[in-house]
Nucleic acid binder design. Sequence first.
DNA 1: GATGAATGAGAATTCATTCAT
DNA 2: CATGAATGAATTCTCATTCAT
Lengths: 206, 206, 206, 206
Amino acid sequence: MPETAKPETRKIQAEKRRQEILDAALKVFAEQGYQGATISQISETAGTSLGLLYHYFPNKEALMEAVIAEHSFLLQLKNIIAKQGKQSIESVLSQLCLQFYRLLESKKELVAIFLREGTSNPAVSQVWFSMIRQGVTSLISLLDQGVKQGVLKEHRLDVTARTLMSAVVMLYLTREAYGEGFTSPEDFIPQMIASQLSGIKSRQKE
Amino acid sequence: MPETAKPETRKIQAEKRRQEILDAALKVFAEQGYQGATISQISETAGTSLGLLYHYFPNKEALMEAVIAEHSFLLQLKNIIAKQGKQSIESVLSQLCLQFYRLLESKKELVAIFLREGTSNPAVSQVWFSMIRQGVTSLISLLDQGVKQGVLKEHRLDVTARTLMSAVVMLYLTREAYGEGFTSPEDFIPQMIASQLSGIKSRQKE
Amino acid sequence: MPETAKPETRKIQAEKRRQEILDAALKVFAEQGYQGATISQISETAGTSLGLLYHYFPNKEALMEAVIAEHSFLLQLKNIIAKQGKQSIESVLSQLCLQFYRLLESKKELVAIFLREGTSNPAVSQVWFSMIRQGVTSLISLLDQGVKQGVLKEHRLDVTARTLMSAVVMLYLTREAYGEGFTSPEDFIPQMIASQLSGIKSRQKE
Amino acid sequence: MPETAKPETRKIQAEKRRQEILDAALKVFAEQGYQGATISQISETAGTSLGLLYHYFPNKEALMEAVIAEHSFLLQLKNIIAKQGKQSIESVLSQLCLQFYRLLESKKELVAIFLREGTSNPAVSQVWFSMIRQGVTSLISLLDQGVKQGVLKEHRLDVTARTLMSAVVMLYLTREAYGEGFTSPEDFIPQMIASQLSGIKSRQKE
DNA sequence: GATGAATGAGAATTCATTCAT
DNA sequence: CATGAATGAATTCTCATTCAT
């Protein structure tokens, strides 16, 4: 290996290193928070030297931003919503919420970062809220289809969309905190959708 | 009392100082997070010398815990739930949610701390979750009354309780982040309760 | 003025307080060293308030000096040497060494201070060495009597005096460090004197 | 050598720096004591920045321990004792004591640390006492040879060994404190040995 | 006399960042 | 590219001393 045998190899290597650092940073930022994380911890986790990190990222802040940009799951969110089949509205909503729940779960570390740093770091909160907005917007258009098809009645779709979104997010957060023993999404979500759809008021005389 | 003119005065002064420090700490911790907050920032905000802080609290961690203990709103939460009158279920639930929203709003700083530090500091998350639990438990017993009175149908009360709670909390958080221009609680909450009660499914054939 | 009913009482009280502080200081200085000891620790040990200490002593340094002056055992040392009866030289020396050992033991805390601070604090080392000098001088004059009486042969008395002194001091220090299980002074000292004497005792018949 | 010109150079430089810091620490600890010494004083003496010290040692305590481990003279002590020739017992003992004295003198700073911190820092006292023990043990075995060869009479060898050791150590300490003008080891030690021997040397013809 | 609240000057330690090798 | 030694500013915490009450 006389150093630059294959110019491609180096670029690929470099990109691999960058990814290793980003992954390590994601993990450490999630565990310790931005302020709590140290550069040496990150580089150690990444298995590189401390100095090398500064070859790829100008500073800690930029690393943080790269982590968020790189791991943002906006695209996945869009895909989930686009791929809904032609089942009953009940089933579609349940599927959607469950998939959103799974998405959060698969992005544990990123969610943890959003939570911790969302209030202080504008770069973070921006991404976080654009996700929520995306979710809500898509849910609204889905509900709108239901209305147009006559399966849902006319009502404040934004309220319903936000309520569903909130319930899923909070379900995830509490489970994260309480541990897996807590109400499972497979149990909770269908129940919630059912309640939402038919209401909880009793109908004696109707 | 031969020795000091007003022996009480000093103790009262001291307690006042302690409170000033706690208030300053609440503010700074909320703004900067635990790690981001510095002792000198806190003491400066409190208008005291840096060293005095250590006269009242053994260290930063203990200060944090004192802040949370001192400002915990568990009691207020209980009171809100206890004081519900004999109006319609719709009105009772709306009132409750709105008051819970107002409570969150009045404890802005503490909520901010819960959010940031909840994942890392067990002392924080413990208080935070005991609040949520309290809220949910009380909501369930309220819903249970409704069921027993026949105004609500039999269903998974815990799911409804958690959904309402989640919606209120997330409403608060998004408004906090987006600014006051966003959907107001006076608009959102009654709508949400209405949806919840009667459902969103259309009833052509019924 | 109902406060100064008996002018004597207050003076006595004050002197008592001073002693309490000195005793506490002796203890804490011995345990923690001069630098390691804190004023609040001392006042707490003395059972007084922190501020009161400054009524009796201008500062920490002065307190240290007072401790040493107050507890110096130069006088006791002189007394020990003066009170030697008319027994055999062997017995006299043994008694002397043992009593010196006991003296060290009874002044544990002071010795600990001498050891720790002797090298840095001139006020301390001065007292410490004046004790050693006193001990050596007195031993020499005792030995000199022996020589004059013909029970000891002519030799370098200073060397013998220093050797005995050293052995006793080191015996104390090692026992202090190793714990009581180590060679006891009752065993060691007579043996040492015996060894020493069969050398320095004159042998008329040889 | 593709990457760095002389990969060894840096490591050597680093080791050199480590030593510089250890040497500075030895000096400052000896002068000021553990508590009295400050990190900035040490780094200044070493000619490095304050932070670098923490690159090499995790904290002040660890630095102290490293100083002691690095400068311990247990090995030298063993060598001294091993290398005794076949001269008269008088000469052998004199040589030994003198060399031990010289050893103490050459390790002035370390001895100062032992003295100051021996009572409080267990890590220190452990090393200190293992030296003393080593010295005494070796002296005993040397005396034992003398007994077996018939040049010394049967007696409590441990007492003699400890007495000699004590005399040398105290001689060093007092000279250290009083200054060089005090009784020199070249004068004192042979005299002491002579005194000692005329007691413990066997007298065949008696 | 007595108290302990208040101060502020350091002390140890951490860590992002730079740079020689 | 890669390393990790080096820096120094910032941070938490300590403590002798003062002083109003």
